[in-house]
Amino acid sequence: MALGASGKFPVRPGVPPDVTGADHETDVAVIGAGQAGLSAAYFLRRAGLDFAVLDHGKRAGGAWQYRWPSLVLGKVHGLHDLPGMALGTPDTTRPASEVVSEYFGRFERAYDLPVRRPVDVLAVRPASGDRLLVESAAETWSVRAVLNATGTWDRPFWPRYPGQESFEGRQLHTADYTGAADFRDKRVVVVGGGTSAIQQLIEIAAVARDTTWVTRRPPVFREEPFTEDWGRAAVAKVDAAVRAGQPPASVVSVTDLARTPEVVEAERAGILDRLPMFDRITRTGVHWPDGTERPADVILWATGFRAALDHLAPLHLREPGGGIRMDGTRVVAEPRLHLLGYGPSASTIGANRAGRSAVQEIRRLLAPARSRTAARMP
């Protein structure tokens, strides 16, 4: 007989665990305390629901606390205020990791949000009655609904290419990037067509011996600044995919790239002379089908992230194509579960809106049970 992730509840095929012995009981569990999770917590507080926020970070800040130090606030695109509290006018020359972490911390304290950290949620599974069981290694929560806001930072995507294991240089993902100093006098191949790839490539080019930029598709730059209409069109494309049960597309594939003054300068300097993807990796570099080779000391995989949803596997949500069928933020196969920061709500402004709409649905979902509880009270 298998045990649950916490070691407390037996897992029998087809038999939901009895959660009467759970360590905690509440209406809603919010998993993750980034932009989406804090937005949801704000609206849960306003709705008067009992809830707990479970965050695996050691401090406030969500994924922002892990951003590389040279990413100053002035280089960040698309950061929006949390509901009910403006970011204000911070120093744009400070690292975004510091500014946003401080802001999130102020928000948590201002609204007295019940954030518990560090908590690594290992599993969410159906339980007895109308409950779901949320399990960490040490504790369990019996809940009526889950708002999952775990984002993507914990699941960096590493493509696989022939010869990758034989490369004698260094390979790292953009999630491991801490600054350009590590690349001084190195021959660097940067793989990826997103904003992070471009920002890091420009920084590295200033100190590296040589840089090569490689992408699967030719990058598409837009001359005009990012607008709400541009954002809405991108969100609509992603929403259509997740409603059909398909995996959400990458942000760059639906939004394109902004041709900022920094990008224009890099183009003029030849830093953004993009090459198509190589077909294999050699011991000392990369190789293309036409026989071209480039030597490399470092390969930086700026290849994005995937949604961190492994803890939801016991709910069996995946469609045959690998996606999760959604209706707004609600999972069609499990209406007690909402995914925030997934698909169309992956942007910071989308996360705020998603938090509000998800809590409205949760209130309707819980209303009958709360009415029955009230009727039983003397």
Rank of each mutant, 00 (worst) to 15 (best):
50 D>R: 14
23 D>G: 12
36 A>T: 03
60 A>W: 08
125 R>K: 04
73 L>T: 09
28 V>C: 00
74 G>S: 15
68 W>Q: 03
74 G>Q: 12
67 R>N: 10
144 R>D: 03
43 F>E: 04
37 G>K: 00
73 L>H: 08
76 V>C: 09
90 P>K: 12
136 S>E: 03
116 R>T: 13
70 S>I: 09
118 P>G: 11
35 Q>Y: 00
49 L>V: 01
135 E>A: 04
22 A>E: 00
126 P>Y: 13
94 R>G: 12
20 T>I: 06
143 V>F: 04
138 A>S: 15
65 Q>C: 10
30 V>Q: 03
99 V>G: 08
40 A>N: 01
87 L>A: 09
54 L>Y: 00
64 W>L: 07
96 A>K: 07
105 G>W: 11
73 L>R: 04
101 S>E: 09
78 G>N: 13
87 L>Q: 08
100 V>L: 09
31 I>P: 05
124 V>T: 02
22 A>L: 01
92 T>E: 12
88 G>V: 08
122 L>N: 01
143 V>P: 02
46 R>I: 02
50 D>G: 07
29 A>E: 05
27 D>P: 00
56 H>R: 15
42 Y>L: 03
76 V>M: 14
38 L>H: 00
126 P>R: 13
22 A>N: 00
95 P>G: 11
33 A>K: 02
81 D>A: 13
35 Q>F: 02
133 L>Y: 03
91 D>F: 12
83 P>V: 08
111 Y>V: 11
34 G>K: 01
101 S>I: 10
84 G>Y: 07
77 H>A: 12
25 E>W: 09
27 D>Q: 10
105 G>K: 08
44 L>P: 00
92 T>A: 14
95 P>F: 15
111 Y>M: 11
29 A>Y: 04
46 R>E: 10
129 G>L: 09
55 D>R: 05
99 V>D: 07
67 R>Y: 15
84 G>T: 13
57 G>R: 13
123 A>T: 02
114 P>I: 05
121 V>W: 01
86 A>M: 07
127 A>I: 14
59 R>Y: 14
53 V>H: 03
64 W>P: 04
88 G>R: 04
97 S>I: 06
98 E>W: 12
95 P>D: 10
52 A>I: 03
87 L>W: 07
129 G>Q: 11
25 E>Q: 10
110 A>G: 07
74 G>V: 12
95 P>S: 11
54 L>W: 03
55 D>P: 10
89 T>W: 05
121 V>R: 01
66 Y>H: 15
46 R>W: 04
78 G>H: 08
29 A>Q: 03
107 F>L: 14
137 A>G: 14
56 H>T: 12
59 R>H: 12
24 H>V: 07
102 E>Q: 15
102 E>I: 14
104 F>Q: 09
107 F>R: 08
21 G>R: 05
142 S>A: 13
72 V>W: 07
67 R>F: 15
34 G>E: 04
119 V>N: 10
99 V>I: 14
89 T>D: 11
107 F>W: 07
59 R>P: 03
141 W>I: 03
55 D>S: 13
139 E>R: 09
113 L>V: 06
119 V>R: 07
84 G>H: 11
25 E>H: 14
51 F>W: 07
63 A>C: 15
122 L>H: 01
58 K>N: 09
123 A>W: 02
77 H>K: 13
143 V>E: 01
65 Q>L: 11
22 A>D: 00
121 V>K: 01
59 R>V: 11
108 E>K: 05
